[in-house]
């Protein structure tokens, strides 16, 4: 154990060399809201939900290296307000209809919205036109729910050594694409055993024929809020 420490909302957090703020906080059992971070994958820093105030500036805690003596503010009204706005942006960018979504209760976007006390999407919806890819025998790819966190991209590339998924386009036109000549998941070498099949925080990559096998009300985030289930430790699904 290293002697290095930083302050997170007044609490002293020990960190090892090379750790980022979020990694150290999670190891110490502290929850900082996040979506594009996964403890087993390389941090990316794109969703900005894990933003914290570090010595005055807002920084993505998943990619900002922990430094001795730094002062980090996370659980403040001002920081949570900004995080909520980012989550709201993700809601209006895609098509997220929680009541009819199979992932409801297991969805990190939904659970984080609850955590941040989001009561409406606030911004005008974009209602993008995104097709569903049902070509794979065991998985459904619903781009409507994709939040471009790139967890599947990193899992496929770094863990599965496959590059099944990637991000294409630019700006608001950024989209998830699949590596096959047809562009369809069924024609790719995606497999149910892939890490990429297990890391989607929302309902974009869904296993078929398992719909509602766990009743709503008994799911991960129905049982305990995300701040309980997601502070450190391996992901539960």
């Amino acid at each position: 154990m290293s002697d290095s420490c930083f302050s997170l909302d007044g609490a002293s957090i020990a960190f090892a060399a090379g750790q980022t703020i979020l990694q150290a906080a999670m190891d110490a059992g502290h929850y900082i809201p996040h979506l594009c971070f996964h403890p087993e994958l390389k941090p990316h820093g794109s969703c900005k939900v894990c933003s914290v105030r570090v010595d005055g500036n807002m920084m993505a805690s998943c990619t900002t290296p922990a430094r001795q003596g730094m002062k980090v503010e996370s659980a403040t009204t001002e920081v949570d307000d900004q995080r909520r706005a980012v989550v709201q942006m993700l809601f209006v960018e895609g098509n997220h209809f929680c009541p009819s979504c199979e992932q409801s209760g297991r969805c990190k976007l939904q659970a984080t919205a609850y955590e941040l006390q989001m009561t409406s999407p606030h911004f005008d919806h974009f209602f993008p036109d995104r097709a569903v890819d049902a070509s794979h025998p065991d998985f459904l790819l619903d781009f409507n729910r994709c939040i471009l966190c790139s967890l599947c991209v990193r899992a496929s590339r770094d863990v599965d050594q496959k590059a099944v998924f990637g991000l294409a386009g630019r700006g608001i036109g950024t989209r998830l694409i699949v590596n096959s000549e047809s562009g369809r998941l069924g024609d790719s070498d995606f497999a149910a055993t892939d890490k990429a099949a297990q890391v989607c925080p929302v309902g974009a990559i869904l296993r078929k024929r398992q719909g509602f096998n766990v009743p709503i009300g008994q799911r991960t985030y129905d049982v305990a809020p995300i701040r309980e289930s997601d502070r450190g430790g391996p992901e539960k699904r």
Partner: peptide, 16 residues
């Protein structure tokens, strides 16, 4: 038009 689309606030915020 020129936002790269990597981070949420710029990707969505510039459109909003």
């Amino acid at each position: 038009h020129e936002s790269c689309g990597f981070c949420t606030p710029c990707r969505v915020g510039t459109s909003l």
